[in-house]
């Protein structure tokens, strides 16, 4: 694979995708894209921290609200941080906080950005992208 450091081309794309989902930017790091991985980690980490500091909503499924399932999938895109926040810290957000809507946008965007990184890692691991 062109541009891939030696030994990394043999990694399974599925394994890379799973690791990329679990730990934001880890897929790119695993594939030798260190500078890009650092930037992606900084961007997603910043979005998560700002979202939590603003008490944004960490989406979870709500009965009779189909859109909440979609939003939950998007939020879960951030991988391990989602589960750590939700189950480790029992974080859920505060709807009465001033920055609730902004924080929700940051948290949801962090998940969606990481999902795009999973797809990008897959493409790099399969040789479709440099």
């Amino acid at each position: 694979m062109a541009g891939t450091p030696s030994g990394l081309s043999t990694r399974s794309p599925a394994l890379v995708a799973v690791i990329a989902w679990l730990v934001p930017a880890a897929g790119h790091l695993l594939l030798g894209r260190k500078r890009r991985a650092a930037l992606f980690a900084a961007v997603i980490g910043c979005a998560l921290i700002v979202g939590v500091r603003l008490n944004g909503n960490l989406h979870r499924p709500l009965p009779k609200q189909p859109m909440s399932y979609l939003a939950t999938l998007g939020s879960m895109g951030s991988g391990a941080p989602y589960f750590f926040l939700r189950y480790g810290l029992e974080y859920s957000g505060d709807p009465t906080a001033d920055g609730f809507e902004y924080g929700t946008a940051f948290l949801l965007s962090a998940g969606l950005m990481n999902l795009l990184l999973v797809l990008d890692s897959w493409d790099i691991a399969t040789g479709r992208k440099e």
């Binding site: 930037l39 992606f40 997603i44 910043c46 979005a47 700002v50 603003l54 965007s109 990184l117 990008d120």
Partner: peptide
Amino acid sequence: ALMFLYALLLGLFFTAL
């Protein structure tokens, strides 16, 4: 400031991607 930060993060992300 929040809008600025959000636009900055998304701009950096899509540029690098």
